[in-house]
Design a protein around this nucleic acid. Structure first.
Length: 219
DNA sequence: CGGCCGATCCACT
DNA sequence: GTGGATCGGCCGA
């Protein structure tokens, strides 16, 4: 993993997902709609290593929801979570391997006004796309973009190379909100000192239910 | 800043 | 029926 510029579309093919994740730092995302275009620079991503990764949606095999992950690289995988949030990934590696990079945070560097209109109530500039669900909201991304070809020049959402990022600016650590056996995997990549990097949160611990909650009613 | 909490609904078991 | 690759509000330090 070096500081070589991201070259597309080859960037998503035949490379370990960790290398793709690292090189997506600093890359530019363009989201085009009739209202205009929002551009952001990626500052934080997480790798999900397909069926081998207990933290990945693909770990338990292919389902209707994660089908895009199993498809060809260079496409967008969008999923819905917590009853209200969308998150987006760049699918990489050959079809069938289901590796993807979750795009977690970015710095809005174009279409600021449009991004703000999609994120009413946000005060600080850095909070516009500071977190995966905030990012999709700022960009106007939902399920309709699942499967988008990221390297098609006419696509409504594209990823293109940004300025190369030196290794000493890359921070690696455990993924946010991932628990279980994969909790410690160092699959999270962020840019050092960037205010747009989302705060780290350990996986939510499920409170253990009192025994009475498990007791069967027998009346 | 850090911790706790509720929101909200879909995918999967 | 269960719980989530999260967020924003509210609280206390």
């Amino acid at each position: 993993m070096g500081a070589q510029p991201l070259t597309l579309p080859r960037a998503f093919y035949d490379r370990p997902v960790l290398a793709v994740a690292r090189d997506l730092l600093g890359a530019l995302v363009d989201r085009r709609t009739v209202e205009g275009t929002v551009t952001l620079r990626l500052t934080e991503v997480e790798a999900y290593d397909g069926a081998a990764d207990p933290g990945s949606h693909a770990f338990r095999g292919r389902t209707p929801r994660n089908a895009t992950m199993f498809g060809p690289p260079g496409h967008l995988y969008v999923y819905f979570t917590y009853g209200m949030h969308w998150c987006m990934n760049a699918v990489c590696a050959p079809a069938g391997t289901a590796a993807a990079v979750l795009l977690r945070a970015g710095e809005v560097c174009g279409g600021r006004q449009l991004a703000r209109s999609r994120r009413p109530g946000v005060r600080a500039e850095r909070d516009l796309a500071r977190g995966p669900a905030r990012m999709t909201r700022a960009l106007g991304v939902d399920r309709s973009l699942d499967g988008t070809d990221l390297v098609d020049p006419t696509a409504p959402l594209r990823i293109r190379p940004g300025r190369p990022v030196a290794d000493d600016l890359v921070v690696v650590g455990p993924r946010t909100g991932v628990g279980g056996d994969a909790a410690a995997y160092p699959y999270r990549f962020a840019l050092l000192g960037e205010p747009t990097v989302s705060p780290y949160r350990a996986a939510a611990r499920r409170p253990s239910l009192p025994d009475s909650a498990h007791a069967r009613r027998n009346d």
